[in-house]
Structure formats: structure tokens, C-alpha cells
Amino acid sequence: MLRKGDIVIIAAVLVLAVFSAAFAFSGGGGETVTVKADNETVYTGSLYYDRTVKLAGNTVVIENGSVYVSDADCKNQICVNHSPITKKGESIICLPNKVIVEIE
């Protein structure tokens, strides 16, 4: 029942699905996590790419589409106690170390 042109169409849609998935889940577009220390960007990557970013005084963890600070060497520990951020525009700020973690 399927003809040659049908196979081409199915292949084209599949390719589109795979490429858009690769783009969406590799940090190519959409929500990205930016970590700045002392006004310098030290890390940018997709919100959906799990990893741990170690800085001089803080450790930032990106996990399952949420970001939190797991460790900080400062006294107040405000950034560590901050609940994980998941949405565009949210940020965690560590004033003593001048670290800003943002979802853009």
C-alpha cells in the first residue's frame, strides 16, 4: 500500500523529529543556564543537560531541568538554601562570591 513517495515523506518527518529533538535537548535553543562569577560568564548550557559546575567557592548542579547550588563556602548559605530554579528568568545569587546562576 505504501509507495515510494510515502517512504520519502515518512523519512523526512522522522529526520525532522530526530534533528529537532537533538536541537531541543542539546542546548541549541530555548532555556539555557548561565553561571556568572564576578560578572564573567563561566558556564552556559541547556537546562536539560545534566551536569555539575564547580566554581572557586560554589558548586552548581543542573539536574532534570532544575538548577540548584549544592555547596558554598560562604557563611550565610543563602544560595544553598534557595529552592531549585526551573523557569526562565529565575536566578540564584550568591553575594559573597559574586556568583549569579540564571535561566535564560
Binding site: M1, L2, R3, K4, G5, D6, V8, I9, I10, V13, L16
Partner: peptide, 19 residues
């Protein structure tokens, strides 16, 4: 545009239309 072609069946242009 696709339905006029001999090599494309209704399944093919249905998928193309949905996409």
C-alpha cells in the same frame, strides 16, 4: 501539492499534511 503525484499515496500526503 502532493496528492497529484503518482508516487504518493493518501497515507503519504496525510502524514505530510499532519506534519
Amino acid at each position: 501539492l502532493l496528492s497529484g503525484r503518482e508516487s504518493v499515496s493518501v497515507i503519504g500526503f496525510s502524514i505530510a499534511g499532519a506534519a
